[in-house]
Amino acid sequence: MSTIYELTDQYEEILNMFYDGETDEDLIFDTLESIEGEIEDKADNYAKLIKQLTADAEMLKAEEVRLNTRRKSLENRAARLKSNLQANLEFIGKTKFKTLLFSFCVATNGGKQPLAITENLGEIPGKFLIPQDPIVDKDAIRELLEEKEVDWAHLEPRGKSLRIR
């Protein structure tokens, strides 16, 4: 069985036979019919591979979701246990000690101090605001281009994709 590349080359050769006018049309149609069967078989095999790979990817995606959910659950449990231990240690005043396995210390966090800012930006002086460049509203421009043409924008041709059902 030929590769998809060889079959494509054979199609091109047949097309050239139509243009040269010297080759018998019956021969061209017989050759074309044999190639079409091979291409259809090749396309079926490609489709089988594509479907299998897609199914495997979906299975892995589902497994990712399951494992991610489990990981988050374990992280949340660990955080609750740590918070509970910290609260109890602070309550009894035992904030620094060692055991045979671990060292414990309740300490103030470092880094930048947390900051709370009002929701009303009008209350904040301008020198504390960062100006930003305008952002293009692409949906509004698409709507405009449906009505009329403009020099500063145009719609690109849509891409193509193979659909296998």
Results as ranks from 00 to 15, higher is better:
residue 105 C to Y: 12
residue 105 C to L: 13
residue 105 C to P: 09
residue 106 V to D: 03
residue 106 V to N: 05
residue 106 V to C: 04
residue 106 V to Y: 05
residue 107 A to K: 11
residue 107 A to T: 09
residue 107 A to D: 02
residue 108 T to Y: 00
residue 108 T to I: 12
residue 108 T to S: 12
residue 108 T to K: 13
residue 110 G to Y: 02
residue 110 G to E: 14
residue 111 G to E: 09
residue 111 G to I: 07
residue 111 G to N: 09
residue 111 G to T: 09
residue 111 G to R: 06
residue 112 K to F: 00
residue 112 K to Y: 00
residue 113 Q to G: 10
residue 113 Q to D: 15
residue 113 Q to K: 12
residue 113 Q to P: 05
residue 113 Q to A: 15
residue 114 P to R: 03
residue 114 P to F: 01
residue 114 P to H: 04
residue 114 P to K: 09
residue 114 P to Q: 07
residue 115 L to S: 08
residue 116 A to E: 12
residue 116 A to F: 08
residue 116 A to Q: 11
residue 117 I to Y: 01
residue 117 I to A: 06
residue 117 I to E: 08
residue 117 I to D: 04
residue 117 I to V: 14
residue 118 T to W: 03
residue 118 T to M: 01
residue 118 T to F: 03
residue 118 T to I: 02
residue 118 T to V: 11
residue 119 E to I: 08
residue 119 E to W: 02
residue 119 E to Y: 00
residue 119 E to A: 14
residue 119 E to V: 11
residue 120 N to E: 14
residue 120 N to A: 06
residue 120 N to F: 02
residue 121 L to E: 14
residue 121 L to N: 13
residue 121 L to T: 14
residue 121 L to S: 15
residue 121 L to Y: 07
residue 122 G to S: 14
residue 122 G to N: 15
residue 122 G to E: 12
residue 122 G to T: 12
residue 122 G to M: 09
residue 122 G to R: 11
residue 123 E to I: 07
residue 123 E to G: 03
residue 123 E to Y: 08
residue 123 E to V: 10
residue 124 I to M: 11
residue 124 I to Q: 09
residue 124 I to G: 08
residue 124 I to W: 07
residue 125 P to M: 03
residue 125 P to C: 05
residue 125 P to I: 00
residue 125 P to F: 04
residue 126 G to R: 05
residue 126 G to M: 02
residue 126 G to K: 07
residue 127 K to Y: 05
residue 127 K to A: 03
residue 127 K to H: 04
residue 127 K to M: 02
residue 128 F to I: 01
residue 128 F to T: 00
residue 128 F to A: 06
residue 129 L to T: 03
residue 129 L to H: 03
residue 129 L to K: 15
residue 129 L to Q: 10
residue 130 I to H: 07
residue 130 I to V: 14
residue 131 P to V: 07
residue 132 Q to K: 13
residue 133 D to T: 13
residue 133 D to N: 13
residue 133 D to Y: 08
residue 133 D to C: 07
residue 134 P to N: 13
residue 134 P to V: 11
residue 134 P to I: 11
residue 134 P to R: 12
residue 134 P to W: 07
residue 134 P to T: 11
residue 135 I to K: 15
residue 135 I to C: 07
residue 135 I to L: 11
residue 136 V to G: 00
residue 136 V to Q: 02
residue 136 V to S: 06
residue 136 V to K: 01
residue 136 V to I: 14
residue 137 D to V: 01
residue 138 K to E: 13
residue 138 K to G: 09
residue 138 K to T: 09
residue 138 K to C: 02
residue 138 K to V: 11
residue 139 D to V: 01
residue 139 D to C: 05
residue 139 D to T: 02
residue 140 A to M: 10
residue 140 A to N: 08
residue 140 A to L: 13
residue 140 A to T: 12
residue 141 I to C: 01
residue 141 I to P: 00
residue 141 I to H: 06
residue 141 I to W: 05
residue 142 R to P: 02
residue 142 R to H: 04
residue 142 R to Y: 02
residue 142 R to A: 10
residue 143 E to S: 13
residue 143 E to N: 12
residue 143 E to T: 15
residue 143 E to C: 04
residue 144 L to E: 15
residue 144 L to V: 14
residue 144 L to H: 08
residue 145 L to F: 01
residue 146 E to L: 10
residue 146 E to V: 03
residue 146 E to F: 04
residue 146 E to T: 10
residue 146 E to W: 04
residue 146 E to R: 08
residue 146 E to D: 13
residue 147 E to C: 00
residue 147 E to Y: 01
residue 147 E to S: 08
residue 148 K to G: 05
residue 148 K to D: 09
residue 149 E to Q: 10
residue 149 E to R: 09
residue 149 E to I: 04
residue 149 E to P: 00
